[in-house]
Structures are given as C-alpha cells and as structure tokens.
Simulated assay, not measured.
Amino acid sequence: MRNVARTSLVDAAIEELRGEISSGAWPVGTKIPSESQLAETLGMSRLSVREAVRVLVHAGLLTTRQGDGTYVTATDESQVALRRRLDRAAAMDIIDVRRGLDMVAARLAATRRTPEDLALMRVALERRDAAARAGDLDAFADADVAFHLHVADAAHNPLLTDLYRSMSEALRDSVRNMEQAVLDYDDSHAELMKAVEDGDAARAIGAGVTILDQQERDL
C-alpha cells in the first residue's frame, strides 16, 4: 500500500483498505494487519484507521473477532447487500428462487458432471445421512447445503455457481428451520444423486422438484 497523507484521513484509509480487499491482496479469510501496522503503513493515526475499519465492518467486507483480530469476509459490497437481503427473505421466497436454480443445476449436472463432481456429491450425501441418523441439525444443514452446492458446481456454469453460493447462508438457515426434515427419512436426495450419476436429466429435474416440494410441506 502507498503512504497516505495525514490530511486524507478516514476516507483515504477506507479506499486504501477497500483496494487491498478488491484487488485480491487480502483474500476472503485473511487476517488483516493490526491497527498499529496499518497506521504506520498509511502514515496516519490509529484513530483514523480504527474508524476506517469500523466502516468496512459495517459494510460487511470485514469482521472483527474479539481478542483475535480483523478478517476479510467479502470482497464485493454488492454481494454483501444481496446476502443480507437473502438472510431476510422468507423461507418460501427462497424455495421459489431455488425452483428455478435447482432445475437448471440438476439438468446441467446430469450431462456435465465429472467423476470428481460425483465423488464430492457422494461424500456430502453420506455426511447428510449420518447427521440425520444422529439427529445433528447443524451438521445436517451443512451437509445438505454442501450437497446442493456440489450439484450446482457439477453444472459447470460459473454464473449458476456464483448465484447458488451467494445464497448458501440463507439456504443453510432455511434447512435448519425445518427440524422435522432431520428426523424423517427421505430418499429424494439419493434419487437426485443417482439420476445425475446416470446422466438422466429428466429424472434429475424430477428429483430436484420432489426435494423442494417436501421442503415446502415442512415449512
């Protein structure tokens, strides 16, 4: 980072930090330098740096962990805004959106999946089944979302993957809210897995619709 004139203050610090994030110099998950290190690098007071960090935390690009430091959580504020909107969306709204995405993902995955895609889907499905047997709601939600993300990845359409991943937190919350799904046996996910593995697009779409119909009934 370049040295910032003291007169630039908070706005300049915000732009410098945002630039480090958006350029990829600080990828998501990276712990950023301490306030004192940033202040020295930018040539400004720690107070100005602290305020700049606070603004970016509020924007959703950074998060501060008490006693640990500050980490990058996103690189694009528009994606943060979308994620926050999704977090507030009603569960039914999420299912309505998923009907479009899941049907496309299932159809494309059945024709484009690779052995590596299938292996990842299979592991996620096994984790999901094990969590259901154990009644572990958090593990079940994580595995369920991972399975559907792997199906989307298997479509090998970058835009579809990005859209699906931007919804991942909202999807996880919606699954966690359907606690009965953990207790009831449901083989529709296994059917989706088998249809994708067999390359049967029509069957994969049908299985995907069945999954969402069941989730709608569980609401």
Rank of each mutant, 00 (worst) to 15 (best):
A105K: 11
D186S: 08
Y71A: 11
D142E: 15
N3K: 09
G43I: 07
A141Q: 14
E169I: 13
M167W: 02
A110Y: 01
S36E: 15
A139S: 08
A139C: 09
L42T: 03
D87V: 04
N177A: 13
T73H: 01
T64F: 08
L163E: 04
I95Q: 06
D102G: 03
D129M: 02
L86F: 10
D68V: 15
V55Y: 09
R50Y: 08
V4A: 11
A13Q: 07
D11R: 13
G135E: 13
A124P: 06
H148L: 13
K194V: 01
I14C: 09
T114R: 12
V28D: 04
R18H: 05
P27F: 04
V10A: 08
T75E: 11
L125H: 00
A12S: 11
L192D: 09
G206Y: 00
V4T: 09
V57N: 11
R2S: 09
V57W: 04
I32P: 06
A132R: 15
A146L: 08
Q215D: 01
V209C: 12
K194Y: 00
S168L: 06
V196H: 06
A124H: 02
G199V: 07
A81D: 14
L118S: 03
D102N: 11
V97D: 11
E35H: 07
Q66M: 08
G60C: 12
T63F: 04
E179Y: 01
I95L: 14
L149R: 15
D102Q: 11
A106Y: 03
I95K: 05
D11Y: 10
M1V: 13
L137S: 05
R203F: 01
N157Y: 12
G208I: 03
A134H: 01
L56C: 09
R65H: 08
Q66W: 01
E197I: 07
A106E: 04
S34P: 12
A141D: 13
N157V: 14
I95F: 07
R127H: 08
Y164Q: 05
I14G: 00
L38Y: 06
R84E: 11
R113Y: 06
D184R: 13
A204Y: 02
M1N: 10
T111V: 12
E197F: 03
L159P: 02
L118Q: 07
D213L: 11
A124C: 13
A132I: 01
R85M: 14
T161G: 06
D173M: 09
